[in-house]
C-alpha cells in the first residue's frame, strides 16, 4: 500500500501533474471557454432591475491581496474554493466547512470572515486579504515571526486562520491585553491546544510592532 502511494506521487511528479496543479489547470481551461460568452459580474454599472447568473460558471473579478484577479466560478463556489482551487492560494485552510472552526479566516473588506461560508459571488468589489498577503515579499509579518518564535503552531491547520484573526486585532488595537487576544481568536479552534502559545506570540508581536 505504501509503495503504491509512493509510486503514484512519484509519477505525478514526473508528469508535472500534482492534484493541485491539475485543479488549477482545469480551472484555466474552463476560463478560456466561458469568458467568451459571459459578462464580467463585478464592477459593472448597476441596472435598475437585478440580474440572473448561473447555474453555469460566470466570470468574476476579485481583488485578492492587492491584485485584481479574473476567475470563472459557479454561483455555488465558496470564496475558500475560489482562493484554493482557482487561484492556487492554498494557505487558507478548510477544516469544518461550516463556519464553526474559522481555519478558513480571511479578511473581506478589512474584516475577518469565514471564507468557507462566503460565496465567491458575494465578494463583489470588496478586497480580500489572505495569509499569503500578510508577508511583505520575503519578510514575514511580525506576527508570523512571533508564531515561529513561540512555537504557536503544531499540526498547522488552524494556523493561517488564527494568524488572520490575531493580525486583524493588531491592526485595530496596537496595545491588546490577553483578554483582547482571547476575544479576537475565540472563533478559531485549535484541536492541538496551542492556544497559550498563540496568545503569547500575539502579545509579543504587538510589543515588537510598537
Amino acid at each position: 500500500m505504501k509503495n503504491d502511494k509512493d509510486k503514484s506521487s512519484k509519477n505525478a511528479g514526473k508528469g508535472n501533474l500534482s492534484r493541485r496543479g491539475f485543479l488549477r489547470g482545469a480551472g484555466l481551461t474552463t476560463a478560456g471557454t466561458v469568458m467568451l460568452n459571459s459578462s464580467v459580474l463585478a464592477f459593472e454599472s448597476q441596472p435598475a432591475t437585478g440580474k440572473a447568473f448561473g447555474p453555469d460558471a460566470v466570470t468574476i473579478e476579485m481583488k485578492v491581496n492587492g491584485e485584481l484577479k479574473s476567475l470563472i466560478v459557479e454561483p455555488r463556489t465558496t470564496l475558500a474554493t475560489a482562493l484554493r482551487d482557482h487561484l492556487g492560494l492554498t494557505g487558507t485552510k478548510v477544516v469544518c466547512d461550516r463556519g464553526a472552526c474559522s481555519a478558513c479566516t480571511v479578511w473581506l473588506d478589512g474584516r475577518p470572515v469565514n471564507s468557507c461560508m462566503t460565496l465567491a459571488l458575494d465578494v463583489g468589489s470588496r478586497p480580500v486579504e489572505t495569509i499569503e498577503g500578510l508577508a511583505e515579499g520575503n519578510e514575514l509579518h511580525p506576527l508570523q515571526e512571533a508564531f515561529i518564535e513561540h512555537d504557536a503552531s503544531q499540526c498547522g491547520y488552524c494556523t493561517p486562520g488564527m494568524i488572520m484573526s490575531a493580525a486583524h486585532l493588531l491592526k485595530t488595537n496596537p496595545n491588546p491585553t490577553l483578554q483582547d487576544v482571547k476575544k479576537a481568536t475565540r472563533g478559531n479552534l485549535c484541536r492541538c491546544g496551542t492556544y497559550p502559545h498563540v496568545f503569547k506570540a500575539t502579545l509579543a508581536a504587538a510589543k515588537k510592532m510598537k
Binding site: Q46, T49, G50, F53, G54, P55, P75, R76, L121
Partner: peptide, 15 residues
C-alpha cells in the same frame, strides 16, 4: 451542494 442560479436583486420589489 447542488448547482443553483443566482439572482442579484436590486430593490425590495425586485427581490
Amino acid at each position: 451542494m447542488n448547482r443553483f442560479s443566482w439572482y442579484e436583486a436590486k430593490s425590495v420589489e425586485d427581490a
